[in-house]
Design a protein around this nucleic acid. Structure first.
Lengths: 211, 211
DNA sequence: GCATGGTGCAAGTAGTTACTTGCTTACACA
DNA sequence: TGTGTAAGCAAGTAACTACTTGCACCATGC
């Protein structure tokens, strides 16, 4: 593994758990197993190293994407949310630290929020398509709804290890239930577009909505 | 104003915007307009001062409470959410900083999360009462739903000043819409329990749910 | 008048910080 | 064999950190 990458990885890890001021060059170098001077020779300054490390180690994109044509909203959205949640949860320490310092160091705003904005854009498009395909039975504000689901993902990933009381032990079950409530909230009935007629979950809430 | 209170207020403010390591005793004393030595004479150490400051300046309780018997869920919940949101928004910097350092300093977990847990308890009771009063038409998990709405409040308060794209300029409107979607999601129809028959919002979504 | 308690000021302690300089070692390639 | 390059080591710089000591000031209560 390249020494530059090793340094960036260590910088991200140490920064995530100690913050900018706590991430001393000595500690980063120790974590990477290289000499402190090597750090300066490669990156010039602590500032440059940490900024590049954050830009490099933030929540990567990838994973399942929401389909162009919605077929089974509940299943598709649950799958997407689980993947997004997992990514956020992986880098939760880094995000928490960035959040706390974004006010003091505005140059961190972009790397810290870029991923969230990309995800929100994808989700927003999908919800709009749900509406345009006639899969929803009530009017709703797409951008407000997008933000609502993103909030659930974000807060869950940030807190579920700090306040386990919140989700109990069944984090995934809570997430699924949240998606169910969300879809019902924007007027999507379970299995609405599933051609084969089977509902994704066994609950079969016998509700009918008339528009 | 007492010099102790002045110091605690300054400590909370400086800590909120600079973190523990950034909140130097010199800076706190300067902000409070007192000599640095006075700080040590009063609190003994920086650690004691900051811990007491956070405990003292966290999001206070108070404001409207959710009623024992729900009459108009949409109105009651919107009012409660707005108040909670406002409190969170007031102390958002402090919360963000605490969040970032809670992993490194576990003794901050309690003061940082106590308020949220109290609010969640109140909301949870209210939702359970909604269900028991027969105001909801679908089965839902009370604790998951509680967490869902709390997540919206929390994320909104944390991010709406950093990523204004999220809520647009109409933060309150977005919040109201979120509550609407949420209530519909747990099967509460607008104006279900409003005795006089008038809906709280003018939308009059002509939906009927059969259970 | 006079002690007392709270405050400020000057100076200093020992430790840590980011970062630099000068020199040495190890390895790759020609 | 010679040369360039990336790395390590020892030592040091100037600034900052939490915190201490000793002394002077001053308003209060008796």
């Amino acid at each position: 593994m390249d020494i530059r990458d090793k340094l960036m990885l260590s910088a991200a890890r140490v920064y995530a758990e100690a913050g900018y001021r706590g991430a001393t060059t000595r500690r980063i170098a120790q974590d990477a197993g290289v000499n402190e001077i090597t750090l300066f020779r490669h990156f010039g300054s602590k500032d440059a190293l940490i900024l590049e490390a954050i830009r490099h180690c933030g929540p990567r994109s990838g994973g399942p994407t929401l389909p162009e044509v919605a077929a089974d909203p509940q299943r598709e959205l649950v799958e997407w949310c689980r993947a997004r949640f997992a990514r956020l949860y992986e880098v939760r320490s880094l995000i928490r630290t960035c959040m706390g310092e974004v006010a003091e160091r505005p140059d961190m705003r972009h790397p810290a929020t870029a991923g969230a904005l990309r995800s929100a854009g994808e989700l927003s498009g999908y919800l709009a398509r749900l509406r345009d395909q006639g899969l929803t039975t009530t009017a709703f504000d797409v951008s407000a709804a997008t933000w609502m689901l993103m909030a659930v993902l974000f807060s869950g990933a940030m807190w579920c290890d700090v306040i386990p009381e919140i989700t109990g032990e069944d984090t995934e079950g809570t997430l699924d239930e949240n998606v169910r409530v969300f879809l019902r909230g924007i007027g999507v009935t379970p299995g609405a577009a599933a051609r084969d007629g089977t509902s994704t979950d066994g609950t079969s809430t016998s509700e009918r909505v008339m528009a």
